[in-house]
Computed example of a mutant assay.
Amino acid sequence: MPPRSAPTARQRRLGAELRKLRERAGLTSVVAATQLGVTQSRLSAIEGGRYGVSGERVRTFALHYGCSDEALIDALAAMTVGRQRRWWDEYRDVLPADMLDLAELEHHATAIRTTQVSHLPGLLQTIDYARCIFRQHVPKLPAPLLEYRTSLRIKRQQIFLGPHPTPYQAVIHEAALRMRFGGAKVTRAQLTHINEMSEHDHITVRVVPFAAGDFPGSGQTVLYAEGPVPQLDTVQLDTEHGCELLDAEAELVNYRTSMDRFNGLALSPADSREFVHQIIKTL
């Protein structure tokens, strides 16, 4: 099996978690490779996500590294399951890899939380609103790429379909609700869509009004994807250069704390729906 030339974020994450286990065991890559019966270069490729391993191989690694956390080991082994072609792979030759990594992250998440200050959550956007957002891209996107990005964003919402939809909580600042991307008509339809989606049992939408005053963080869009075990949680940030994925324990703790504080400022789900309804009436 040749090394992967462009491993996905999920494949890199598995390798990084195996490296963490080795480092916690106090083993150098040279010693670990000898114990595992592989070359140091092969071990490096595995830890970089460039070379795949089986679930049994992961369990062998964990045994040599003295890891006794069965839940974590099971979760890591599950990440090795042969990667089937997914719906987002059809975009692989036309869109940036980090956009596809986000779709994969959401697909595998056990629950998702997000905080939004200037834009409405991508997983709750209408087609018209999403298209308008992508029209603001600098440099301007060619029409085909704009449509590809819009299509990907809408298809990501598949996590809400089926018998086991992903639990989702969005805390949205009033500023984002007041932004009229696409004009009054598009905004009205978008806010109505959010209220309708918030009626589903698995979707919670809460609003932080201007009256709440100060709020934690810098107003950055944050998505927190829970993994099968807390060690595999991931934070996704939107930046001017694409999305950034964070998984260091200290970073996860800081973002959980910040999001909890932001959530504490929000109205109840019922009051939030009424708040959004009142904004709709002004459009």
Rank of each mutant, 00 (worst) to 15 (best):
A130H: 02
H64T: 02
R180P: 10
E244H: 12
T80S: 06
I279F: 03
T39F: 06
T80Q: 06
E70Y: 00
S151C: 01
R273S: 12
R188S: 11
Q136Y: 08
A32G: 07
F134W: 12
A189W: 06
Y91P: 05
L267F: 03
T192A: 11
A130V: 00
V53Y: 04
R273H: 05
K20N: 13
R131S: 10
M259Q: 11
G264I: 13
G55P: 01
Q116C: 12
L246P: 03
T282S: 13
T114M: 07
Q278D: 15
H241M: 12
S5M: 13
R50Q: 08
I133C: 07
P139V: 03
Y51L: 15
P7R: 07
T192R: 14
A9F: 12
G26S: 10
W88N: 03
M1A: 14
R24T: 13
G37T: 12
R261H: 15
L245F: 15
L18Q: 02
M179V: 10
L267Q: 02
V207Q: 08
Q116T: 12
Q157R: 05
G15R: 01
A130D: 00
T39W: 05
S41Y: 04
R10H: 14
S44E: 08
Q125G: 04
R12N: 06
L123Q: 05
I133L: 14
S268K: 09
Y51T: 09
A189V: 11
M179Y: 04
Q278G: 01
M79S: 06
S151N: 08
L14W: 11
L18H: 04
G182Q: 06
Q125C: 02
R180C: 08
A111K: 11
A176W: 09
L102S: 07
G48H: 01
A71V: 04
V81P: 00
A62L: 01
D89L: 08
L95D: 02
L120Y: 05
A248L: 14
V138W: 00
H173N: 09
R256V: 09
P7C: 07
T282K: 15
R83Q: 14
R206S: 14
H200R: 14
R4M: 14
Y168I: 02
Q158T: 14
A33W: 03
